[in-house]
Amino acid sequence: MPGPDLLSSQGLRLDGRRPNELRRIRCKLGVFTQPDGSAYLEQGNTKVLAAVYGPHQASKSKSTTEGVVVNCQYSMATFSTGERKNRPRGDRKSQEMSLHLRQALTAAIKTELYPRSQIDIYVEVLQADGGAYCAGVNAASLALIDAGIPLRAYACACSASMAWRNGEPEPLLDVGHVEEAAGGVVLTVASLPNTGSIALLEMSHRLHMDYFKVVLSRAMQGCRDIEIILDKAVRDHLAEGWTKQDVVTI
């Protein structure tokens, strides 16, 4: 499969990363006061915000006795991409992303604890540079923790692609916008690394079955790496002694 040239002869990627290297992740919990939980996450140049409201009483039509209704909304700010987006939300892509967010996060939330309730999760992409969905899941995971909602495990998402080096397959971790645009396969995985389960799997383009396993295992490795970063962020945040009650301005 002569894919596009994503690796240099030295084995470095277009943005200078090694194949198994994540982009720099910077995150912060509890950035806002209005929502019950919020988080900001930067993955390279992709910047996303997540806010969680709830659990609160669900509207009559949505309410179920089985568990909490998870309502997700993914929206991209009009200035998040180089070309101006006219509809920040409600278009096909955002709707699809909202659905995928819900699927991934419902897997992580202990939904049975809150029957007849609803949790609203809003994700806003401020700057998109590839992997906005992954960053959205990671940020939402942090926001849920900030809101104090019981989770089974961290929900982490990561993407992986495929490149060739000296005729050997070499999967690429955490695909950026340039690599995404260059074509080639992008495998997006949302998983609960702690339990080893996959909550969501999506692949674009074509990939030979023989190589699927290596790409998937690299994406899973990425999820595990991200979990460590998120966990550290949560611990640092709590170590600061920062609880919501302290800053409530009455």
Partner: peptide
């Protein structure tokens, strides 16, 4: 923000607003 031609983030107390300008 790098995707916008010009941008600013402002916080007045807790009120937070982002503005991005794009050209056409």
């Amino acid at each position: 923000l790098k995707t916008a031609e010009a941008s600013a983030v402002v916080k007045c107390g807790n009120t937070t607003v982002v503005c991005g300008i794009q050209l056409e």
